[in-house]
Amino acid sequence: MRNALQGSIEVVARNGEAAHAAISPNLPLLIEGLTVSYGEKPAIFSIDARFAAGRTIAIVGPNGAGKSTLIKAALGIVPRLSGTVRVFGQPIEQVRGRMAYVPQRASVDWDFPARVVDVVMMGLYRTLGFLRFAGPKERQRALACLDRVGMADFAKRQIGQLSGGQQQRVFLARALAQDADLYLLDEPLAGVDAATERTIMDVLKSLKNEGRTVICVHHDLSTVAQYFDDVLLINVRKIAEGPVASTFTDGNLQKTYGGRLAGAHIEQLRLPVE
């Protein structure tokens, strides 16, 4: 196993080298030969993907397919075993100010002593800089972001007193405060109420209309066609990427889910959404 992996990594590295010339500063995210491993077994293996500007993109795949790992590696949160990530043509460290991240809601302890507005102001960290503390100006910006997700009335609530959907909207507001060009969201619609889902999708669409790029790990196959322009199908390896219409096909889904989706299930996905 190890040797086989090692061998493939070398090939990946050589391929990555060759493709470098094509990196454009206008391409929000380019991933080449990306492999991440938490132990012996790779979580994602040799993934290549290009994410075009001004699009909404869903990353879709079964549980354990490495969807979260992929965006964490794209953000430089988890170390890469091999491969390159270029954001607007540059290494991650040089463009952190242009990226925003919405982690999974369950990844933090909501009993933390902070109010809603405090969490949103965390998105202003990079603009605050060293040894400066948030003041009225930052508060105003945070409140404006909260207003965009319909949470302005909750600014002073302790974050543990919010519903799941409200917590998700606060996380989105924090990402809005980052004022980024590339948004990476990890399951922003998981376990939220219908009203929150509508609000979040409206905000994501307005981000797209402003020319920003939105990449979401997405779990609900029935809404992919409705919500997203492009889709990246992965299951440890990349299965397919491209516009939803041509990529989100029965054949690709079968390959992604390894026959775990019944034919009837896929039929359902083809039904027009009411």
Binding site: K72, L75, G76, I77, E93, R96, M99, Y101, P103, S107, V108, D109, F112, A114, V119, M122, Y125, R126, L128, L131, F133, A134, R174
Partner: peptide, 22 residues
Amino acid sequence: FVFWNALKISTFDEGFALSLGI
């Protein structure tokens, strides 16, 4: 005092802190 903002963010949400370059 010096690391107040960074400590606060990374204590609450380490993944987000790392994404900010902390």
